[in-house]
């Protein structure tokens, strides 16, 4: 599905923020990229989406999506790809919406921008998507403004939008980090459910190693732009290769875990 081959990303002449990074996601698989702030994990997603900010660019390697290189696409080809075949779930979907327009209007506009549907068909589709992510009373959600919804509901709307065109690849950037604990569990459950229904591939960016372990098939641990560990969940949790991963594992607080008092 998506193959990243040894890419290096640089901003201007600065040292690379991501070095020799490779990744392979297959149909229906979830790959998690775990790292602390400044590890370069968001850079991966931006490189895949082709929107590195400022003067960032991929200086080495290639990114292949279904066998095609993403690095050589022009603007029109990107437009056709983004939102339909590759879509994104943000940390705070509410912040990505226009606060002065209703959720429904924005959803309909989003669908129509990427398809030839009429207004009514797009509305039908939005309602269908909203109920598929188990939002209670989708009619009311459509009429609401982003600030009237809770964080969890906004995140569900974000997921519904990202899934609207049955994308082949989902990029999720810290999708639950801004949420309360119980809401996080709900959203995670929703995402795993969705994963079972579709055969989309997903790249999950998170700082939460336990969440990565729960959701994904393959985990990549990043530190300062370099891969320090990569492997299956079992491999990472039981037989990590680097000292960094071991430290990270030891630092995750657990209810049954160590106490300092």
């Amino acid at each position: 599905m998506l193959e990243i081959k040894k890419i290096t990303v640089r901003y201007g002449e600065n040292p690379p923020v991501l070095e020799d990074f490779s990744l392979l996601v297959r149909r229906g698989e979830i790959v998690a990229i775990v790292g602390e702030s400044g590890s370069g994990k968001t850079t991966v997603i931006r490189a895949v989406l082709g929107n590195l900010p400022g003067d960032g660019r991929v200086t080495k390697g290639d990114i292949l999506f279904e066998g095609r290189s993403l690095l050589s696409l022009n603007r029109e080809e990107w437009r056709r790809l983004r939102g339909t075949q590759i879509s994104m779930i943000f940390q705070d979907s509410g912040a990505m919406m226009n606060p002065t327009r209703s959720v429904g209007a924005q959803f309909v506009e989003y669908i129509r921008a990427h398809s030839g549907l009429t207004k009514n068909e797009a509305r039908e589709k939005s309602l269908e998507m909203l109920s598929s992510v188990r939002l209670p009373d989708p009619e009311r959600v459509m009429k609401s403004y982003p600030f009237e919804l809770s964080g969890g509901m906004r995140q569900r709307v974000g997921i519904a939008m990202a899934l609207a065109f049955r994308p082949k690849l989902l990029l999720a950037d810290e999708p639950t980090s801004a949420l309360d604990v119980t809401t996080q569990a709900q959203i995670v459950r929703q995402m795993t459910l969705q994963k079972k229904e579709s055969d989309a591939a997903m790249i999950l960016i998170t700082h939460n190693l336990a969440l990565a372990a729960y959701m994904s098939d393959h985990i990549i641990v990043l530190k300062d732009g370099k891969v320090v560990d990569s492997g299956s969940r079992d491999h990472i949790l039981r037989r990590p290769e680097s000292g960094y991963t071991k430290n990270l594992l030891a630092a995750v607080p657990a209810v049954k875990g160590a106490r300092y008092v």
């Binding site: 209670p136 809770s150 964080g151 969890g152 509901m153 309360d180 604990v181 119980t182 809401t183 996080q184 569990a185 709900q186 995670v188 459950r189 795993t192 939460n208 190693l209 336990a210 969440l211 372990a213 729960y214 969940r233 949790l237 594992l249 995750v252 607080p253 657990a254 209810v255 049954k256 875990g257």
Partner: peptide, 20 residues
């Protein structure tokens, strides 16, 4: 039950109360 930690059972569906 909503805590993700490394000791959890990864095969079991995560428990959560509904709504917010």
């Amino acid at each position: 039950s909503a805590v993700f930690d490394l000791e959890m059972d990864f095969t079991k569906e995560i428990d959560s109360i509904e709504s917010e």
